[in-house]
Amino acid sequence: MSRDDRQKLLELRDLRTYFDVEGRTAKAVDGVSFDIYTNEVFGLVGESGSGKSVTSLSIMRLIPNPPGRIESGEIRFRGQNLLDLSFAEMRKIRGNDISMIFQEPMTALNPVFTIGYQLREGIRYHSKCSKAEAEDRATEMLDLVGIPDPRRRLKDYPHQFSGGMRQRAMIAMALSMEPGLLIADEPTTALDVTIQAQILELMLKVREKTGDASILLITHDLAVVAETCDRVAVMYGGKIQEISEVKALFKTPLHPYTQGLLSSLPRPDKQKKTRLDTIPGIVPSIMSMPPGCKFAARCPIAEPRCERDEPELREITPGRFCRCHLVDGKGGGRAW
């Protein structure tokens, strides 16, 4: 199936989300554009502070204001610009068409209400069903995410659940209205390594059983991307640096940053005893971004113009985008 046959579910166009901190403006998301198609798992990768979480919250329009604001751009969901909607209309989309799973299952659930209450609440608000129906649906969802004895566990409070179970409950909550898009913001970062894989697998499995939502998976973990995603965007300094099919990305990373990320991964096929590569330097402060390429200061191949001019995000080969002066399409990728 070629990718043009598929329908665009979400289109981000030049999204800019700024934060005003102590009189200065931090451009957390600075002109991000990408598309998500129906039924795909789209990964958004980047270091902490690269703006990936802010991007996801912008889609939900959950940017705390003040200090944050969505400055400009378009977020088209099924053709409709979410930024044009009133708050009341937006509320009908949240949790219903687009839902979200957060990083910290410990704090993301309200400690003073039962799991059942918090599950039912969203269901009843969107489907206007009776309490009993909502209860049934909640039980069904808890069962689906693999929590034993769901009807009894509905009466439990969040602190009676383990971290993994809470994240399961979050998944149940997020998928209970069979949304078109599920945004998962580092859903496994706070969990034990042994549970991480379970939760990811569960998320994909349950999603298949409930309306086959697209997933926007935000992570800093390339292994997770390789495991679960169809396509992936790499973010750095509030900008998308590269968009690609997952396989192509791992095979031939175009952007120097992506290359750096990949070579800092332990690879079983590489010789042991060699040290892992690291990317020198640190992420530039969000308060004072360089004018040119955001990665220039750490880039092994940077030229003077990289520091000066911001490169465009260009389509190198069909479906592959890269933001680098030194990458051109002719040689199948690299110019250097």
């Binding site: 939900m60 959950l62 708050f87 009341a88 509320r91 009908k92 989309i93 949240r94 949790g95 219903n96 839902s99 979200m100 957060f102 910290e104 704090t107 993301a108 659930l109 309200n110 400690p111 003073v112 209400f113 609440e121 969203g122 608000y125 969107h126 979050m170 909550m173």
Partner: peptide, 25 residues
Amino acid sequence: ADYVRTAFAKGLPENRVVFVHALRN
């Protein structure tokens, strides 16, 4: 708090989030 964001993400109206979720805590 994070759970307030979760409540908004579920699509609950502002009044309910403030006066039920946050106020209760």
